[in-house]
Design a protein around this nucleic acid. Sequence first.
DNA 1: TGTACATCAGTGAACGCGCGTTCACTGATGTAC
DNA 2: TGTACATCAGTGAACGCGCGTTCACTGATGTAC
Lengths: 237, 237
Amino acid sequence: MATNDGAVARTARERARAEIMAEIVATGNEHLARDGAPGLSLRAVARDLGMVSSAIYRYVPNRDALLTLLIIDAYDSIGAAAEKAESAVSRKEYLTRFLAVCHAVRAWALAHPHEYALIYGSPVPGYAAPQDTIGPASRVPTVLLTILVDQAMAGALPKAPKPDPAVVASIAPARDFLPPVIPEGTTIRGFTAYSSMFGAISFELFGQWQKVVANGQRARKAFFDQQMRILAEGLIT
Amino acid sequence: MATNDGAVARTARERARAEIMAEIVATGNEHLARDGAPGLSLRAVARDLGMVSSAIYRYVPNRDALLTLLIIDAYDSIGAAAEKAESAVSRKEYLTRFLAVCHAVRAWALAHPHEYALIYGSPVPGYAAPQDTIGPASRVPTVLLTILVDQAMAGALPKAPKPDPAVVASIAPARDFLPPVIPEGTTIRGFTAYSSMFGAISFELFGQWQKVVANGQRARKAFFDQQMRILAEGLIT
DNA sequence: TGTACATCAGTGAACGCGCGTTCACTGATGTAC
DNA sequence: TGTACATCAGTGAACGCGCGTTCACTGATGTAC
């Protein structure tokens, strides 16, 4: 047994490998920010790392694998931002917690537009996301769900009429991860708010509010805040 | 003056040109559907049209121009679908008109996923949409606006509290095309419903409901319908 | 109606580019005894 | 502790590919007189 603190970074090789993997992800993100996902190339990343183009294949088996790494990194990054913002709010301030998440997600998106586009924009043609991305992808929705659960536990959930049986059936898969305290009507409203939030961010980020909403940071933020408050109606108090 | 019915297709050359332009757009759309926007290439389109690769430059000055043609075509196509569905509903059935538009837009998106991604998904890196796309882009929102205006004229608009001054200021640019019958509170709710609708469609189309909403057509449609009804609350009666 | 010139569509070759990926190799690091 | 072998990281050349775009050209169509 060699000198070894924990499971990380044992031999020099392993340490170097972990570092280089991190550099690959970092450089990949830079390229994403400059050229977007379609322009991402293994050769270019290798070049930036001072490697010959074939050397990168020691770390990443192909281009799709690099995309997967970047997708996981992006989901983790946006998830961490949401968690951090939400955790700073006192537990009983449900609406404030919700808005904190919304604004954190939006701020992250504005700061990392190409990473955002990678995970919430159009799928990259020919790329199929593997299972590994599902876990990190659920961090943001999990935070939001926690707010609803806390509210339900406190008996502070607004009444939501039970939807049509067809609608209830449509969200059957969600029952696997949804605690029973959340009624169906609330679930649908929650999902709607959830996709709506990303709709609002995508519209802002992808330029769809051109000539509709003022361009200033202040205006955009106030507009978004109001949108999120509307989405929270009948769901979060 | 040659035999000439109207402003279209005079000489053989002009007729041929118009036809080939249409074929270019059609073929471009096929390629979009197969490979997505990033993979769209002038060479490939020319090849499919039986032209030598340089010949296409007689019709389209460069790749970006082809993208612009396809974007305009997509906006026109989705706009026409929305208009058609909405026009079939009796004028006073506001909610039914709204839902007709929502379902028409969704159906179009499901039928043309790559064209949808082109106009509502991540922007194509390095491409800047020219002014020509603004007109066609406004067809869907214009139909939706008409519903609100008709409702306002009939005095059937739900009350919406006037938002904060900062919020009102943020939508100042919209005042240019918004009739004064629509109050600020309604405007913001309308914009929110609008971006939310595309958020819902994008989530469905881009695979974000994996393991959340059931996969069947029926389920997906029922779920979407319920979402749209929630968005209509406090806005459309 | 017929001819002369101008315009346009399409050809074929070429330019220079960057990409993903493979392969046989050298030299450094790690492991077993 | 020292040596022998196995593993791994990185090299450099090469493969075959498709792309956008330019250019000088031929031949057909359109226009002016």
